[in-house]
Design a protein around this nucleic acid. Structure first.
Lengths: 129, 129
DNA sequence: CGGGATCCACCGTGATACTG
DNA sequence: CAGTATCACGGTGGATCCCG
């Protein structure tokens, strides 16, 4: 085998990381999932995503908008109204995320069990205070 | 429709986030991709993953080991020798990651173009110093 | 060779208050 | 309603030194 496989894989992993930087933060996945069935307004998202702050919702929406994953529609009315929706590209991401979600659902139990076993092993050596 | 879709989706997004917390950090994906074809040793990984520090390789390997994604085999010899490999569960993650990588490859150009357009729009309003 | 321990800079995140 | 501005904190990651 030649070294092409390596560089190709590294390049691919690098691109994948850029995507993970986008959807891998604390809130993006929630926003994406909340917009998967229909357009929503700012406070609607804020209500539906438990625990998110106003600021972080703004930041997250800006980031997703910047990358063309969601669209932002402002209506110049009083009071202000802004609608957020997934773009076509954002919709294609749903399938990919779905694959990740499936993996998570299938392995969450196994991971937690492995994690618990690992912790039990390592924590059984308490340092003498 | 009932509210099941919402809670189900939120729960799923939550589990997906746990997975993203695992593989979504700065280095995990590189380690996983580097181990995709064969077992490797510590310094071998350090050489092959450009820019990773000793500390971060250790931290990343521990995290992946803790969740059962990679296995760690120590040989009590002098000098020490430690082998890292993907576990069967880690291998199943390769397919999922592959899906993400494919999405990234397909859309990286579109994302960068959208991003550039967004930045050009927003940066065209310089604050008067 | 394969780490561990320590210190530190950065920045993602949250709380709060204010605004058009 | 849909933000912006400011401050503060904590966790992530990098640099360095040391160890078995």
């Amino acid at each position: 085998m030649d070294s092409t496989a390596f560089s190709e894989r590294t390049r691919a992993a690098c691109q994948a990381r850029e995507i993970l930087d986008r959807v891998g933060d604390k809130w993006s996945l929630y926003v994406i999932s909340q917009l998967s069935d229909r357009t929503k307004r700012f406070n609607e998202l804020k209500r539906d995503i438990d625990g998110i702050s106003q600021r972080m919702l703004t930041v997250t929406l800006r980031g997703l908008e910047r990358d063309g994953i969601i669209s932002r529609t402002m209506y110049p009315v009083m009071p202000p109204r802004v609608d957020y929706a997934l773009t076509p590209m954002g919709r294609t991401l749903l399938d990919t995320v779905g694959s990740l979600v499936s993996w998570a659902e299938e392995h969450v139990d196994e991971i937690e069990a492995t994690r618990a076993r690992y912790d039990a092993r390592t924590e059984s050596f308490p340092e003498p205070e």
